Simulated assay, not measured.
Amino acid sequence: MTMDPLVLMTDVEQSTEALLREAEGWDPSVVAEPSGLPGWTVGHVLTHLARNAEAYTNLLVWARTGVETPAYANPAAREEGIEAGCRRPLAEQLGDLRAAHDRFADAAAAMPAAAWAAHLPPIGQSAAGVPWARLREVEVHRVDLDRGYTPADWTDAFALRLLREIVAAAPEGSPALTLRPLGLEHPLQLGEGDGPAVSGPTKSLAAWLAGRAGGADLTVSPDGELPLIPRWK
């Protein structure tokens, strides 16, 4: 998957529009139903996606103007915003998500080429990483909504990039594993030291490491159970 932020913005647009089209056909009562995330309803996930779009809009404004604009006003604002909006009617939530996405897209369109290189301390990288971060949020949380969209629906490019990101950001103490995605010439190493090899489709490996699938179609060599891994995100 390319690092070109404008190309990634096209992916963000397509993923968001697909989610909104799907959600327009849901029963309004769905907002109170459990999502795939412990303790969160569908309404929690939808509200989070809207507030996350606004958070990333703030970071793009920071990169473009040089004026420090935190993603959230304070450490508690993220959770407070989700709780404040999660019980709203479905139509209101979808309108909010669409409007927040549009503001994010407008902020990206307003970025001069040089601004994409601006370093953003909250994400530890340049602004060029923001479109990928937003795409990751939308695609992973579409799965968390538990309304029929699964990791099998991810593109191969998205799954591979997500897999590589999870491996690169693995916390200290992660079990040593050699990951062998089918069709990928070079394995990926998780953790330090020797450990079993886990093989399977890239989408399945990414979903398992992200805590969005049980890994039923993965194989372990030498034979054994899949190891327990820290929950990602």
Rank of each mutant, 00 (worst) to 15 (best):
M3E: 14
L6S: 07
L8M: 08
T10N: 08
L19V: 05
L20T: 14
R21M: 11
E22D: 13
A23D: 02
E24L: 13
E24H: 11
G25H: 15
D27G: 05
S29Q: 11
V31I: 05
E33P: 01
L37S: 10
L37N: 03
P38K: 05
G39T: 06
E54T: 02
V61A: 13
G66L: 01
V67I: 15
E68M: 09
E80M: 08
G81S: 07
G81V: 07
I82A: 02
G95Y: 03
R98S: 14
A100K: 14
F104N: 06
A108E: 00
A109F: 06
M111E: 03
P112D: 00
P121H: 00
G124Y: 01
Q125N: 06
Q125L: 05
S126C: 01
A127Q: 00
A128G: 09
A128T: 02
L135A: 11
E137F: 00
V138W: 02
V138R: 05
E139P: 01
E139V: 13
D144L: 11
D146V: 13
Y149M: 04
T150G: 09
D153F: 08
D156R: 13
A159Q: 07
L163Y: 10
L163M: 13
L163P: 08
P171R: 10
P171M: 07
E172A: 14
T178W: 06
R180L: 13
L184A: 10
L188M: 08
L188K: 02
Q189A: 12
P196F: 02
G200R: 03
P201G: 12
P201I: 06
P201K: 12
A210N: 10
G214Q: 13
L218S: 09
S221F: 07
P222L: 02
I229W: 04
K233V: 15
